[in-house]
Design a protein around this nucleic acid. Structure first.
Lengths: 244, 244
DNA sequence: GTCTATAACGAGATAGAC
DNA sequence: GTCTATCTCGTTATAGAC
């Protein structure tokens, strides 16, 4: 990305961007399953064979769109986080979750591309993993901060899950106790359950004030991973809820 | 559906079933977006216009598949529940959630049809609502049982959510306190977050022992809606996992 | 009445020759 | 890079078989 690069290179990135823009437009109209190189080319006034100089196949174009979507989401979440970097973990958790929701609602088709049904006949390559991990890594960083020093009581892990938690913790956050790692993995999936239900219309005629609902649900999710208030006044009994 | 119905009626239901079976096969291979009446007819050795005697349009066929999927899932969940109808709410909650997961893993394409990305250009009509509600109604019935008599302490609802909870509770479970209703709505979405992540491959290379993970996560979900143990009697060892 | 088949429409995708 | 011939699709009108 040097500032002084040739006109060729600049033209290439411009065309690449135009292709992806048009592909995203088609994604919105017809869905990922019907994404067709030919249609993209036609809309751009190019010929389909010319597209292959930019993307070797339809699947590669799809992969690029997927990585872009993950990165766009990740960047949105990270930017939102930076604005409250000095706040406590609870607030940062809420802000990041709400940023993820906001992005999903603003980009429902790209959300469907990365968190919706798999595209028939397409398998995402490993090259999507780093971008796909950004939100999870950001969230677990917040959880790590929350657990630094203070040991929050979470429900004990069943023995069968201990090895799983250790394995997962090694990659993710070696300093976190296994029950926090597992609770985080669950919260991660559950966060996207909440968002997916909203984006995909499952809350239609069920939950109306979705913003308030999400705020509340996400706070509870945070409790589940040990994000409790140092002095928890207002919101009632937070973290460990299991005493009969 | 009288037992003594004419050959006409029998033939009609048989052809209808054959059409839906073939359509489901196409669903698995190409996805809902590419479901085509002509391809279904071709595969059945019929002519496309003949299909219109059974389904007035492609969207109506899709609607029938969606309702069938919801009903299949609902029936699976209800059947699993009946087998443990005498157990405590915690065990019943776990059994139903695991039945839902089992169905989803056994029918990933139908799961994608009802809980995945929306089909472009298709809007589900109201006639899908009853079938779509079965699992939620079953789950909230368990929560109601758990809360009968005993008042479990859940985090207080923020004031902004009170009206929402009351409105939702009126349809769903008028005897439940609003914070339980809201917690349940969240748990409902989160359950499908867990299942969706597994079915759609988001847990690949992340969570390996998914059965144990799900069991644990679902127990935590239950805690979130107030399913805590007095003493869990249930038949199997499904129960007490909430220490501290 | 109930069904299937033929034919056609307008729109769009696709493959291959040039 | 262009053009054309041949596919697909959803849907309808119509005619005839049972």
């Amino acid at each position: 990305m040097s500032t002084a690069r040739g006109a060729r290179a600049r033209a290439r990135t411009e065309v690449t961007a135009a292709i992806k823009d048009e592909a995203r437009r088609q994604l919105a109209k017809e869905g990922a399953a019907k994404l067709s190189l030919r249609a993209v080319a036609r809309e751009l006034g190019m010929v389909s064979s010319a597209l292959y100089r930019y993307f070797p196949s339809r699947d590669d174009l799809l992969t690029a769109l997927i990585i872009d979507a993950y990165d766009s989401l990740g960047q949105t979440a990270e930017a939102a986080h930076e604005k409250v970097a000095d706040a406590g973990p609870i607030r940062r958790w809420a802000v990041v979750c709400e940023a993820v929701r906001g992005w999903a609602l603003a980009h429902p088709h790209e959300y469907a591309l990365i968190y919706g049904s798999p595209v028939p006949g397409y398998a995402a390559p490993d090259s999507t993993v780093p971008a796909a991990s950004r939100v999870a890594l950001l969230l677990i960083e917040i959880v790590r901060d929350a657990h630094r020093g203070v040991g929050v009581a979470l429900p004990r892990l069943p023995a069968e899950l201990k090895p799983e938690a250790r394995r997962l913790g090694q990659d993710l956050a070696p300093d976190l106790p296994p029950e926090v790692v597992m609770a985080f993995a669950a919260a991660w999936a559950q966060l996207f359950g909440l968002i997916g239900f909203e984006v995909f219309g499952q809350f239609n005629r069920v939950v109306e004030d979705r913003e308030a609902f999400f705020r509340h649900a996400v706070a509870q999710l945070g409790h589940g991973v040990g994000l409790v208030f140092p002095q928890d006044t207002g919101t009632g009994g937070g973290g460990s809820r299991s005493g009969s």
